[in-house]
Computed example of a mutant assay.
Amino acid sequence: MITTGLLLAAGQGSRLRAVTPFKPLCPVAGRALIDHALDGMAAAGLTRAIVSLGYGADAIAAHLAGRQWPLEVVTVMTDYHQPNGVSALAARALIGPQGAVLAMCDHLVQPRHYRRLARAGAGDGLRLGIDRRLGHAWVDPLDVTCVATRGDGIVAIGKGLEPHDCYDTGIFAVSQRFFEVLATLDSPSLTEGVRLLAAEGSAKIVDCSDLDWLDVDDAPAFAHAEGWMTKLAA
């Protein structure tokens, strides 16, 4: 089982700026998004989390330093103007041969989502948690990353992809091979990394259609998140 998490928390979060200046610190049901993620990783059995910081790094680092965490938390710095693959590559040297559970800080999930990917492992490239519930009310069809699969393999991925048969939930198990592939790209994004691994047959899926998740990227998604987390805490 993978025991290291990699949390990407470097983006500007401009569509949530009316709610919070720094998206990872956005309070959802009384807790910052980054707290939900780190506590969830710990509950899933991960023992270390590497957090990639960029926009608002000082404020987020101060927040991280302000409490005791149930797992080891390490931060790395990245250029938030660059694609998200650069944020992942910033942590490459800290990822062991076992790989990591890679997650977006703004993707709100339950601990068992992380645990499922950690137990599945990265294989020879990566495994991506997917959701086959097309048209789910919580999913923004204009923003969600769509995936086309054949068997347990990914054959295509991208926003606006047609045809597609599932959604990218934003939670991965990634190996060192994933970082090797990202490093070959001039403008490395996670999606491009997945495409390259899919071409060599080493991008696989883990079905997470039974697990709720939410990309907290704008005000409507924030409202959904508030209702969901408040209900779970009740």
Rank of each mutant, 00 (worst) to 15 (best):
M1I: 06
T3C: 09
G5A: 15
L6S: 10
L7H: 03
L7N: 06
A9P: 05
A9Y: 00
G11L: 05
Q12V: 12
G13A: 07
S14E: 13
R15Y: 10
R15I: 11
V19Y: 12
V19I: 14
T20P: 02
F22L: 09
K23R: 15
V28S: 00
A29F: 09
A32F: 02
H36D: 04
L38I: 09
L38G: 09
M41K: 03
M41Y: 07
A44E: 01
T47C: 11
A49T: 06
A49P: 01
I50G: 07
G54P: 13
D58N: 05
I60M: 05
A62F: 12
H63A: 12
L64D: 03
G66L: 03
Q68N: 14
W69P: 04
W69D: 01
T75Y: 04
T75E: 07
Y80S: 14
H81I: 08
S87W: 07
S87T: 03
A90E: 06
A90I: 06
A90D: 12
A91V: 03
A91T: 02
A93E: 15
G99L: 09
A100I: 03
A103I: 05
C105W: 00
C105D: 11
L108S: 05
V109T: 11
Q110P: 10
P111H: 14
R112T: 07
Y114E: 05
R115N: 13
R116E: 04
L117N: 10
A118T: 00
R119T: 13
A120V: 15
A120D: 14
G121T: 06
G123E: 00
G125P: 06
G125L: 10
L126Q: 10
R127G: 04
H136M: 11
A137E: 02
V144R: 05
V144W: 00
T145Q: 01
C146I: 03
A148L: 14
A148T: 06
R150I: 11
G151M: 11
G151I: 14
G153V: 13
G153I: 14
V155S: 08
I157K: 08
G160F: 01
G160C: 03
D165A: 01
D168C: 14
T169G: 02
I171P: 05
A173M: 08
A173Y: 01
S175D: 13
S175H: 07
Q176W: 12
E180N: 09
L190C: 09
T191F: 07
E192F: 02
E192M: 08
V194N: 09
G201F: 04
A203R: 03
A203F: 05
K204F: 12
V206F: 08
D207I: 02
C208I: 13
C208F: 14
D210S: 10
D210R: 01
L211I: 07
W213P: 01
A219E: 11
H224M: 15
A225F: 00
G227L: 13
G227R: 08
K231W: 15
L232G: 07
L232N: 04
